[in-house]
Each structure stands twice: as structure tokens, then as C-alpha cells.
Amino acid sequence: MIREHVRFGLLSDLHDGVMDAISKESVLDHLRECVECDREYREIGRMLRMLSGLRALCIRSGDDFTRATLSRILICEKKRKRQAYYKRMIPSAVAAMVIFLVGVDQFRNSPSGTKPEPVRMSSSLGSGDESREIASSYDMRRTISILKRNRARVTMVSGACIEAEAPVRFVDDIQRECEGSVSYGMQGFATAVGYSDGGMQEGVAPFPGFIQQRSADQFRTVRVRIKLR
């Protein structure tokens, strides 16, 4: 049996049941003999009961806490899923864009002799003579861009040609820009046939394939057809 007063820690451990059997027996023997330690032990017990009374502290029932929290969780989950989706998609989109830009860059910088193989499409227009290869979608976009820049209204785009209505006064510019394209290694990039409202009339081609019909009236609109190869 313990002769001296039992330390507070041991009494506390006794309440928690975290003592080995021998120590527990010694302390209990002492408590039977020592009024002071026994009182201390009982006071600790009373304090612990009072502390456990604080379990009554809880969320007010009127606050509807669970529903509010669940709503927030659902919103956060939706947001998280959306972010995860974008996280998955962004690398693919970036990769696609990089491939596209590298392709464009290579196409621009390639010398005329090493121009990438054109996409071959059979024409849906005209007879066998009009069957042409389309150089690439890049050529097509470039041609449309030239036309639009020169106030032309694109009326038809096919695998073989692009038709547009352009003010007569801009036909020279269209022609020049097409020549510019040719000089940048896109020989045979475009052939054009210009014709007035009266029907197709081939004129003198300033470079192979570009044929235009110019009206006397510079402000009139002519239809221009650019054949892609």
C-alpha cells in the first residue's frame, strides 16, 4: 500500500482507467485508508461529471445546419467536377493548338520546293478540266482573307474553287495579293476567272491562271472565281 498521499496524476489516471492492475490496487488500498486522498479522488470525479455536462452545448435546432452544410457541399462538388473536367481538357486543347501552330509555322517557312503535300480533294464543280487539287485549308483561308480584305463578298466555297463578288476597283489588289502569295512560294496558288454580269468572259491573265474581265465602270461589282490547286 502507498504510505504517502497519492499524486494527482495517479488519481486522474484511476478515473480514466489507464493504470496497470497492480498500481490500481495499491492506489485503491490507499484511498480506503486516506480520507484526504479519497476526498480528492471524489472531487475529481465530480469535476469530470460537471465537464461531461457541457456535452449539452450543441447547435441550435432552428439553424438547419445539416441541410445548409449539405447544400454548400453539393455546390462545391459541382464546382470541383467542372474544374476537374477543365483540368483534363486543357492539356489536350493546348496540345492541339501547339500542333496547329507548329504546322502553320512549318508551312509558312517551308521553301517552295519542300511545300507540304497538299490535301487532295476532287472537285465537285465543272468538267474534268476543272478538277483541281485544293492546296490546303490554309490556302483556302488565306484566299478568303484576301478577298474579304478587298471588300469582296464570298459567295461560294468548294474544294475546287472560291467564288466572290468584288468591286471592280479592288480586282487589281486581289490580283496583286495573289501574286504576292505566288512570290512566297505558292506558285499556282490561285487561278481566277473574272466575269461580268453578262456572263463569263475570259480576259488576259497577268500571271498563269488569273484571268479577269474588267468592266468599264470601275465601281461595278464583278464576280471572281479563284480556282485552287
Partner: peptide
């Protein structure tokens, strides 16, 4: 677990509304 988390949070901040906010954040 809401009341247990709340009690701990309340013991730390001693303010009902803040403890409630903390409890919600813990579950989130």
C-alpha cells in the same frame, strides 16, 4: 459529428456564429 465539432470549435473561439462557421468549414 456536428455537435462534437461545434463544441470543440466553440471552446476555441467562444462565439456561437463563428463556431458554427468553423463547423461548416470543417465538414466541407
Amino acid at each position: 459529428y456536428r455537435d462534437r465539432v461545434f463544441r470543440y470549435a466553440y471552446s476555441r473561439v467562444y462565439n456561437y456564429d463563428e463556431a458554427l462557421d468553423i463547423t461548416q468549414e470543417v465538414f466541407l
